[in-house]
């Protein structure tokens, strides 16, 4: 049991031989895997058993509160007196609330501008940091520092940097003859500023996932590619990218989900202003639940958000068949 070596060694050799025959990895995609075996009873039981420890807690601690809040979304509840049945009132009112549309627009802006940048830069960084240069560990740590820093402390620092009056950023721009930018002050610039901070804070996160994924790409694939005369760009697109696509897929899905729930950075940096330019959906949820005494309404916002994110996730799952290779 404690000797994994022998089996694995054989297996790796077999696998390597196989892959070596097909330098361009698309043959490793998942389709083969699915049809490989028929469903059998033993495997079904094993599947449920492997799932069980997670599933039990999952049902209690995740699904139960979710169902609770779903029910609440059909109620009026001020958190103090008993909830009363509201039918679809909350949902109906929600769609008439201009703040909802504004927050949704802001959140989508944050997600659809921020997520691609996060992924591209994170991947770029991981590729750089995977290479054969000195001081890698140092750089990796440096890029990971913002991820571990507390949002509150770094937001304060960014406020300082963004300060329209005495801020360091405008000072530096001044050296290049660029006019001061009203970073957090103007409704037009506030969201880009927030995205910048989120990017700065989150890029190291994606970097780590991609680094781990890059480790999984067998070296000899590149060797055969080089023999075939592929340049680095081709190597990236034909080997690296398909090989790490499951991780890219993971990063895309979770980044979209997380970005649609952006809360911390906007709360500390701008409080949602100016003129609601950075007010996000989850800020709205929090506000309606705990400032406005409207838990039912807040729950309905959460479930509309759920629906939206679910649609995007399903779309991604659908399109993933075209570019994710297992």
């Amino acid at each position: 049991m404690t000797e994994p070596g022998s089996n694995v060694k054989v297996a790796v050799t077999i696998a390597n031989k196989r892959i070596a025959r097909y330098p361009f990895v698309s043959t490793l995609s998942g389709g083969e895997r699915v049809s490989r075996r028929k469903i059998n009873r033993k495997e079904t039981i094993a599947g449920y058993l492997f799932l069980a420890p997670n599933m039990v807690g999952f049902l209690v601690f995740m699904v139960f509160p979710l169902v609770g809040s779903l029910l609440l979304s059909f109620s009026h509840w001020n958190l103090i007196q008993s909830p009363t049945f509201a039918g679809l009132d909350n949902y109906r009112q929600l769609f008439e609330n201009p703040l909802f549309w504004q927050s949704l627009k802001n959140t989508a802006y944050f997600a659809f501008v921020g997520v691609p940048l996060q992924i591209i830069l994170g991947l770029f960084l991981a590729v750089l940091l995977y290479s054969n240069i000195k001081g890698l560990e140092f750089f990796r740590t440096v890029y990971f520092l913002p991820v571990v820093s507390s949002t509150v402390a770094v937001s304060l620092m960014w406020q300082w940097l963004f300060d329209s009056h005495t801020g360091l950023l405008n000072h530096v721009l001044g050296w290049f003859g660029i006019n001061p930018v009203p970073w957090l002050v103007s409704p037009k610039w506030a969201m880009p500023s927030v995205i910048l901070v989120a990017l700065w804070k989150g890029i190291g996160y994606n970097m780590v996932i991609f680094l781990a994924a890059l480790k999984g790409v067998p070296e000899h694939l590149y060797e055969s590619a080089r023999i075939d005369g592929a340049n680095r760009w081709q190597q990236f697109w034909n080997i690296t990218f398909p090989m790490i696509s499951p991780s890219t897929f993971f990063v895309t899905i979770t980044s979209i989900i997380n970005s649609f729930q952006v809360f911390d950075v906007t709360t500390v940096l701008t409080g949602g202003g100016p003129a609601n330019a950075t007010h996000t959906i989850v800020m709205m949820i929090y506000q309606y639940a705990f400032d406005f005494f409207r838990m039912g309404y807040a729950s309905s916002i959460a479930y509309v958000l759920f629906g939206i994110v679910l649609i995007f996730t399903l779309l991604q799952l659908y399109f993933s068949k075209k570019w994710v290779h297992y």
Binding site: Q159, L184, V185, S186, T270, G271, P274, A275
Partner: peptide
């Protein structure tokens, strides 16, 4: 522009540095 003072810390800072 009051949008400078979305968080109270900024107004305190501007008071402290004589702005």
């Amino acid at each position: 522009d009051p949008a400078n003072f979305l968080t109270t810390e900024v107004l305190s800072r501007w008071t402290i540095n004589n702005t």
